[in-house]
Design a protein around this nucleic acid. Structure first.
Lengths: 209, 209
DNA sequence: GAATCGAATGTGACTTTATCACTGAGCACG
DNA sequence: CGTGCTCAGTGATAAAGTCACATTCGATTC
């Protein structure tokens, strides 16, 4: 076992060995769906490497990206499902080939009991996610879409063009495809971006604030 | 000490006595502000009775209600701040006279270490809050405002009229006062509500679905 | 290479929300 | 009884969402 999760690295070796023994290592390929809305939770996923996108579907059929999980993240969403015995409300899509550990509830509970460090990290991670969601609420409720789109592009399309469709961008922002298309067209007319099918390039002059 | 918090009731008596010894009981009056955006966190608030509204302010000056805390709730938001050492992003307003315990971080950590039951409840409560926020994201992103307003009224103004201003309703829904005014006026024209200054009465025929 | 099909994008018309700048109404207090 | 409040109503305009299509690009097949 070469790569490991930062949360386990901080454990004393005895606990760590026990944890590794109970955890199941899984490999996920790009495009895999880790869980869907309504699914039950079979353990706590801990991401070692890769990237997983968590999003939810509205009644209208539109979706919105809630957050992403990367290396050394734990799926805080799963903790809630695990503890409350509810199903997931969101769905998780693998974006890049991902290595993860699936920690059974029993083992997770033992770690929480035994290690103050582990506890602290898990709670902190929970706090960050809560924070992310609050930020998202604020953006969706009060943010202007052109600004949000521009910021997304700055974050994801600086340096090299983003390979993404308008539909996918709409899900990133929680809006409709047509709205994204029109905004991008406007940006193009103003020389802020260069567009091609499935590709959005942010022009140099726009990358600074 | 008469009233207590459900989370402490489930503890063995030794732990419970210790917890009660370290926790500080506080009384909050309607209108008090428990914390504001940017404040540091001085401990974990646990609500015994009463009601506290948690909301955040957008850059535009508009606000939106995130959730409410009632009897036997813990302020999950505080755990994140406590663990990550960040300030709060939201603000908490007392709506009804409220009794609460303020549990210092040290004491909280000892409880988390010592009681599986306590741990489980805290994590479950965290999960519910995440869920609330996800639901809110969906509503704000995809919900129609007239439906959201009507549902708010059904939840808070069935039986007796709601004593609330249009401005406050706007904050409940994360929108602008004018929008609420217009929608309510429409509802009134269609005989769904009766309006008075600072008062919205949902008419009987509307209370069923 | 041309035909064909499906996904991705473009667009017009219209509705719903948001914003701005006011006006008017109800209420408390001197 | 004014006189200031806060609360509510409204018109004009802009931004965003919805619906119904038209177009275009690329890959696959012939």
């Amino acid at each position: 076992m070469a790569a490991q999760h930062a949360l386990l690295e901080c454990l004393p070796s005895g606990l760590r060995a026990e944890a590794e023994q109970h955890a199941q290592q899984v490999h996920l390929s790009a495009g895999d769906v880790v869980f869907r809305a309504g699914d039950g939770c079979r353990g706590l996923p801990m991401v070692i490497s890769g990237s997983v996108r968590v999003q939810m579907l509205g009644a209208s059929g539109h979706g919105i990206v809630l957050y992403r999980m990367g290396p050394d993240d734990v799926c805080t969403l799963s903790i809630g499902c695990l503890m409350a015995g509810r199903g997931y409300r969101a769905e998780a899509h693998v974006e890049e080939p991902t290595e993860a550990l699936l920690m059974p509830r029993q083992a997770f509970d033992r770690l929480m009991a035994a290690s103050a460090e582990f506890r602290q990290q898990v709670m902190a991670s929970y706090g960050r996610r809560l924070d992310d969601l609050m930020l998202l609420v604020e953006e969706v409720a009060f943010g202007r879409l052109d600004q949000r789109l521009l910021e997304w592009l700055k974050a994801h399309a600086s340096g090299q063009p983003a390979l993404i469709t308008h539909q996918e961008l709409a899900v990133e922002l929680g809006t409709a495809r047509e709205v994204v298309s029109r905004l991008l067209k406007d940006f193009e007319r103003h020389g802020r971006v260069r567009l091609a099918r499935g590709r959005v390039e942010l022009l140099q002059s726009q990358e600074v604030d």
